[in-house]
Design a protein around this nucleic acid. Structure first.
Length: 554
RNA sequence: GGGCUUGUGGCCUAGCCUGGAUAAGGCGUUAGCCUCCUAAGUUAAUGAUCAGGGGUUCAAAUCCCCUCAAGCCCGCCA
């Protein structure tokens, strides 16, 4: 409804002013939409902007009144207030199943996210990637895209060589009940310590790197075992977070099937290639000082070479590629994009997010200095269970556990996704365990509250007449959900959805406190119940698009 | 040294790309609200030189330049 109303206003304003850009902005407290076009025209025509605004208003208020939009002016500002017919349509729309969905689009999209190295468990830095990536994926699906989500598994890197060496030489037993990925991290940390103590081990790591590239069966098996062990643990964590992948792509497959060799051959033929004993690409034309090295002097390939082959493969299968990467990958990501462009390949779009650090400094798997995602979820779940037990002691334990799990995962995801991705953050236990106002539990609670009212109401006849301020503000905001979905797809900034969901909850709570629903009578009761249903449906859709369970009771 | 990103009340965050009407929330602090649809809620009070300086503009938190501060990157690691 918003889209059509917006374009109606835009068209009529264009006709009346002859301006291509009619400068529509949000109306703030004054209106639902406003135009500052009178300022621009006044400047050019050297006229009084307020007088122009009045003239424009006179020309457009008739046609817009027919469409249910009220036009007013305050000085040079032309304000548009959406009337009762808009409000009714917005509520009507918001009742629909799968509300927020946009029409299907052509083309296949691939989103790659998380792709953490399988040398330990996901930590609170990695899951910023997972949550941003998964939320984007959910939004893209809602926006009508055919989508596949991938995890690129770096299974032949140096750190895997180190892990495999650790398994062979350090004889570190797995602890009772220890998750596989946590076990792998302990081996990795210990192996790194051994290397620091004894430099000669490095030669053995290099030897393993050479063997893996040649496809030596024994070494392939050693690497595969270590990587699988870790990857299964990572998958379990991803499942707890509601951030599933459609496909895990193993880096080594591009070496084995010859596609990496093929793309390196194409690069060798490029005028930008440099063969100084190594293979590298000169990207000076793109503003990069350093060459992009793809093959070492000993003939082995570096990560970037496999990454090019992976992206070539993705380009063959998808029309649009989106990668979610940490800010530390900005340079290498831009080099990848430039090289793909040189090759005439599909250039991936990259969503970068800034770092999550600990109060004492940045995280490091190698140093064993990190807060794991599992530990975070465990502790938040425990806290959530205590909170549920205090509030709802009458519920059976199983139900309290289930609510606590939904609240905990929601809290973790929401805290991550609500902050825009270009801001670096510092992880803090106190904040993580705080279910205060701007959190998932707050939004979930509003949804549960709406469910409770609907349960008590029984059957009612839908009605769409709204008069109070709280009713109209809520109804209009519900109407914005599809706009938010489109904005996120355009900007690749999922935090908008977190903000939107919270605003819906704010407005629902304001309505709840100002306008009685069950105690109202007749048409007012029916209209308010209809609005509660619309709010409940929108909150549910928004929460689910955030990957958060919309529990009916908490 | 070069590049990228960030800097908004005591603390955290939105707004910045697409300039416009009194800078929006939360936490904290203070004082209230459950014989009333779930108080994980809500009302009010408190609190901002939008890092600093300059510029563009009728209009700057928003655009441009400089300075300062923080984080990240600049490897034949990933």
């Amino acid at each position: 409804m918003y889209f059509t109303t917006y374009s109606t206003i835009e068209t009529i304003l264009r006709e009346a002013t002859g301006e291509e850009n009619v400068l529509l902005t949000g109306g703030g407290d004054h209106a639902d939409l406003a135009s500052t076009v009178a300022f621009a025209m006044a400047k050019r025509e050297k006229k009084n902007p307020a007088a122009l605004a009045a003239q424009i208003k006179a020309a457009i208020e008739g046609p817009l009144a027919e469409k249910g939009v009220i036009v007013t002016t305050i000085g040079p500002y032309i304000n548009f207030v959406f009337g009762p017919s808009y409000v009714a349509s917005a509520v009507q729309d918001a009742l629909g199943e799968g509300y927020g969905a946009l029409p299907l689009r052509d083309g296949k999209v691939c989103i790659e996210h998380t792709s953490a190295n399988p040398n330990g468990p996901l930590h609170v830095g990695h899951i910023r990637n997972s949550v941003i990536g998964d939320t984007l994926a959910r939004v893209f699906r809602k926006a009508g895209f055919d989508l596949e989500v991938q995890y690129y598994l770096n299974d032949m890197g140096r750190q895997i060589a180190i892990v495999s060496w650790g398994f062979d030489h350090l004889e570190i037993p797995q602890n009772e009940g220890e998750k596989d990925d946590h076990y792998v991290a302990r081996v990795y940390v210990a192996a790194n310590r051994a290397i620091t103590a004894d430099e000669s081990i490095k030669a053995e790591i290099d030897r393993r790197m050479g063997l893996i590239e040649q496809g030596d069966p024994e070494m392939v098996e050693k690497f595969r075992r270590a990587v699988s062990l870790c990857a299964e643990g990572i998958k379990a964590t991803l499942a707890r977070l509601n951030t599933p992948h459609d496909r895990f792509v193993w880096e080594s497959s591009f070496v084995q099937d010859g596609s990496m060799a093929a793309i390196l051959e194409r690069i060798e033929a490029l005028p930008e290639a440099s063969h100084d004993g190594i293979l590298a690409v000169d990207l000076a034309a793109f503003g990069f000082e350093k060459e992009y090295v793809l093959r070492r002097s000993d003939g082995t390939s570096v990560y970037a070479a496999r990454d090019l082959a992976y992206h070539h493969w993705k380009g063959d299968h998808f029309d649009r590629l989106i990668n979610v990467l940490g800010a530390d990958h900005k340079l290498i990501g831009a080099q990848l994009q430039a090289t793909m462009e040189l090759l005439g390949e599909t250039v991936p779009e990259i969503v970068f997010f800034e770092f999550v650090s600990l109060p004492e400094g940045s995280m490091s798997t190698r140093a064993g200095k990190f807060v794991s995602a599992d530990q975070l979820i465990d502790e938040v779940t425990e806290k959530a269970f205590d909170e549920v037990t205090v509030r709802r002691p009458e519920l059976p334990e199983e139900e309290r556990r289930s609510i606590a799990a939904a609240v905990a995962v929601g809290a973790v995801r929401y805290d991550i996704v609500r902050v825009s991705q270009e801001k670096s953050t510092v992880f803090d236990w106190k904040t993580a365990l705080d279910f205060e106002r701007q959190s998932a539990p707050y939004v979930q609670y509003s949804h549960a509250r709406a469910c409770s009212i609907l349960d008590k109401a029984g059957d009612f006849e839908p009605a769409f007449t709204y008069t109070t301020e709280a009713e109209c503000a809520l109804a209009k905001h519900l109407g914005l959900f599809p706009v938010v979905i489109r904005t996120i797809v355009d900007e690749l900034r999922p935090h908008h959805l977190a903000i939107y969901a919270r605003e819906c909850a704010d407005l629902f709570n304001a309505f709840y406190h100002q306008d009685p629903v069950l105690k109202a009578e007749g048409e007012i009761r029916n209209a308010r119940l209809t609005l509660v249903k619309a709010a409940q449906n929108t909150l549910k859709e928004a929460l689910e698009t955030l990957g958060i369970d919309a529990v009916r009771s908490m």
